[in-house]
Simulated scan of single mutants.
Amino acid sequence: MKDGLISEEIILTTDEREQTVFSDWARRTGVDVDSLVNTGCGCCVDIYTVQASAEQLAELRTRLAAVLAEP
């Protein structure tokens, strides 16, 4: 693990809004989504282990929570 980075499992549904939040976050933080291994089934859930700073992971959690709170 790189200095200052935390490894965290991210679980996403295949909902387009969640996927977009994750992709946008990954692009901004330099996480290469194409190099991540998806350990979810892919039909209803995607599971990735990412490495990022605590602040970056907190931002992702906040953005994903906002999507889940939407009707």
Rank of each mutant, 00 (worst) to 15 (best):
I11W: 03
T39P: 09
Q51G: 12
I6F: 13
A69F: 09
L36H: 13
W25G: 05
C43W: 15
L60Q: 02
W25R: 00
A52P: 13
P71V: 01
V33N: 02
Q51Y: 09
D34A: 14
P71W: 04
L57R: 01
Q19C: 15
A26E: 06
Q56Y: 02
A54G: 10
A66V: 10
T62P: 11
L60N: 07
P71D: 06
V67E: 06
A58E: 01
A65F: 14
D32W: 08
A54W: 09
I6G: 13
T13G: 11
T20I: 05
R27G: 00
V50R: 10
D24G: 09
C44W: 11
D32G: 06
T49N: 00
A65N: 14
D32A: 07
G40V: 11
N38C: 06
K2I: 08
A69C: 02
E9S: 11
E8S: 00
E18R: 03
A52D: 15
V33F: 00
N38A: 04
L68E: 02
E8G: 00
W25Y: 03
T14C: 08
L12D: 10
E59Y: 05
V21A: 02
V31G: 09
G40D: 11
A52Y: 06
L64Q: 00
D15R: 03
G40I: 13
V50F: 00
D32P: 01
V37E: 13
D46W: 01
A26G: 05
L64S: 12
D15Y: 05
A69T: 05
Q56N: 07
G30S: 07
T39Y: 08
G30E: 07
I47E: 06
T13Y: 00
L12H: 15
T62F: 14
T14R: 03
L60T: 02
C41W: 15
I47L: 12
T49A: 04
V45H: 07
G30D: 06
E8D: 03
L5D: 09
G4P: 08
V31E: 10
D46H: 02
E18Q: 02
S35A: 15
E18T: 03
A26Q: 01
S53G: 10
G4D: 04
S35T: 15
I10S: 00
